[in-house]
Simulated scan of single mutants.
Amino acid sequence: MIMCNSHRETGSPGTMSTKGQEEEEEDYMSDTFINSLQDIRPGMPMARKIKESYQKEEKHKEANIKNRQRKIIEVEKERRDTKLNEALGNENKGFALLQKMGYKKGQALGKKGDGIVEPIPLNIKTGRSGIGHEEMIKRKAEENLENYKRKIQTRKHAEEQATDDFRMRMRNKKEEIKLKSDFSKSQRACLLLDEQKGISTPRELWYWPKLQQETNEETEEDDDDDNITEEELDVLDKLQILTSYLRGEHLFCIWCGTTYQDEEDMVSNCPGDTAEDHN
């Protein structure tokens, strides 16, 4: 019993020290440790702060690369400009050969001395396109501009033509309405003047308004022939024929609205036998 107790007493300090070490170490199963880890599984969304820091770092890298490339280009340009601005010396093989053939610095080239004095300028090609590509782009741009101007001109011409056609249609429509109005006035005047003279039947069926025409057996028999003649005439032809009848038979002008005493009076006072003469 004593040994057991002593063993228990000696063993208990060791047990306590082991528990203390376990408490000092992190608990890998605790929520604190799990939440502190970044979830790197594919498809899982990043934390907002981590994502922003990652994007900021990427932008910083891109800016450094661009700055480095810009510096390299600037350094190359400075070196190139420096070399181009330097005068040719004896170390240049081409210049040395020219001097052996009698060339002097500042002298023009050629047997007669009418050539160039300055060296041919150096055109540096910085792009990655082939030779002639810029000329092709310029030519295409000019062609596109010409095509655009041509389309604008064609569209403008089409609009002007459409406007002219519309104006012509409206003018023709107004003239047609005016002709129909004058013809209707002539029919009514013909009916009134014929009745005043005791004429019961018009010379032609269309001389009078259709609602006022008498429908007897004689007119029905001759209706077919009259319709054929009427259909062959347009409003202008009918108006000219009817006004000529009114002027010759009744000495009446529909545009003057006057019945003249005799033919001499009509010739003297009436401007003419058309609507244009009365404008």
Rank of each mutant, 00 (worst) to 15 (best):
S6I: 14
H7P: 01
E9S: 13
G11E: 11
P13I: 07
S17G: 07
T18L: 14
E22K: 15
E23K: 15
E23N: 07
E24I: 14
E25S: 12
Y28E: 10
M29D: 13
I34M: 11
N35W: 07
L37Q: 08
Q38Y: 14
P45W: 13
P45L: 06
R48L: 15
I50Y: 14
Y54G: 05
K56P: 01
K56M: 13
E58D: 10
H60K: 15
K61G: 04
K66G: 04
N67W: 11
R68T: 12
Q69F: 07
Q69D: 06
R70E: 12
I72L: 11
I73R: 14
K77G: 06
E78C: 04
R79T: 07
D81N: 09
K83Q: 12
L84W: 14
E86W: 04
N90W: 10
E91R: 15
G94H: 09
A96H: 08
L97G: 05
L98A: 06
G102I: 03
G102K: 01
Y103D: 02
G106M: 02
Q107D: 06
K112Y: 04
G115F: 03
I116Q: 09
V117P: 03
I120W: 00
N123Y: 14
K125V: 08
E134W: 11
I137Q: 11
K138L: 08
R139M: 11
R139P: 00
K140P: 01
N147I: 08
R150Y: 02
I152L: 12
R155K: 14
K156H: 07
E159R: 15
M170G: 01
K173L: 10
K174H: 06
K178W: 05
S181F: 10
F183T: 02
Q187A: 04
R188Y: 11
C190W: 04
Q196N: 08
E204D: 05
L205R: 15
W206Q: 04
L211Q: 15
Q212M: 14
E217P: 05
E218F: 10
E221L: 15
D222F: 13
D225F: 10
I228S: 10
T229E: 15
E230Y: 10
E231C: 09
V235K: 00
L236N: 09
T243A: 02
Y245M: 05
G248C: 08
H250A: 01
L251M: 06
I254S: 00
C256T: 01
C256Y: 03
C256F: 04
G257T: 02
G257N: 04
Q261R: 15
D262K: 02
D262M: 02
E263L: 06
N269E: 01
T274Q: 00
E276V: 08
N279Q: 14
N279P: 02
